[in-house]
Amino acid sequence: MVNPGKDQHMSPTSPPGTAQDTAGIHLAVGDRAPEQPRSAGAAMATENLHVYYGDFLAVRDVDLQFDDRRITALIGPSGCGKSTVLRCLNRMNDLVPGARVEGRVTYHGTDIYGPGVDEIEVRRRIGMVFQKPNPFPKSIYDNVAYGPRVTGAKDHLDDTVEQALRGAALWDEVKDKLKQNAYGLSGGQQQRLCIARAIATRPDVLLMDEPCSALDPIATSKIEDLMGELVQDFTIVIVTHNMQQAARVSHSTAFFTAQPDEHGDRVGTLVEFDRTLKIFEDPADKRTEDYISGKFG
């Protein structure tokens, strides 16, 4: 069920310009984004996405594109459906009884809800990091090795674990205590361990659901630095309630809000999706402007 037809860019090499991107990760909005070369294309996209929980429409009509090896931020007030959209991107919503998705979610052109698509394979390509660090009650090593083990990639496991921990900027801190229980790590270290666990299966896309909301500012800044590194290799989609974070790390930003429908139920709606600079400096929609400027939310 490969779908190469729709895929204009099959080049696996990194697009030019990513090195500069990461160098400027701490700069304010506008310092980096305008100079960005066009992305090689969309790694993922949603078309006409509606999400229901039972009869309740949670999110309506979302069209988004997640550019390859770019960071896309989903922002908005609580209850706006941003996390729901994120959890559709690797079919984690399948686990919620009664959850139903309409429309298309494509991964390099293939509809991940299409026939013949296996949600396990989807999750192996599209990793996820959660709001609260959720290491397994196992050793640091076993946490990182878990993904490769369950996916059958057991060769060179030590190398895989080391690479993943280095990738998550955690190796130097834990290399001497790999056999210790992961619960002994600090919150920020646990979250980086979860990132290491997610990248150990060598996914393509990394979904991050408010990855810093349970962390202190120092740990948060480490994770933000790390995202700048990771974006060289991964397409990242991050949900955040922290607008400054979205402004600091992302290339594109989607603003969601909850709009009452005809029955008065609040339904998550995509208001505006554009380059981050545009969203923060010159939003097209009044609601976005109000939210960004703190008038609402």
Binding site: P12, D118, E121, A164, W171, I199
Partner: peptide, 24 residues
């Protein structure tokens, strides 16, 4: 911060890298 070495995931995965059908 060390330069990322976790990368190049897709090159190793080869042609089936974006295949979403069950492997088994």
């Amino acid at each position: 911060m060390a330069v990322t070495t976790a990368g190049r995931p897709r090159s190793s995965a080869g042609g089936s890298g974006r295949d979403l059908t069950p492997r088994s």
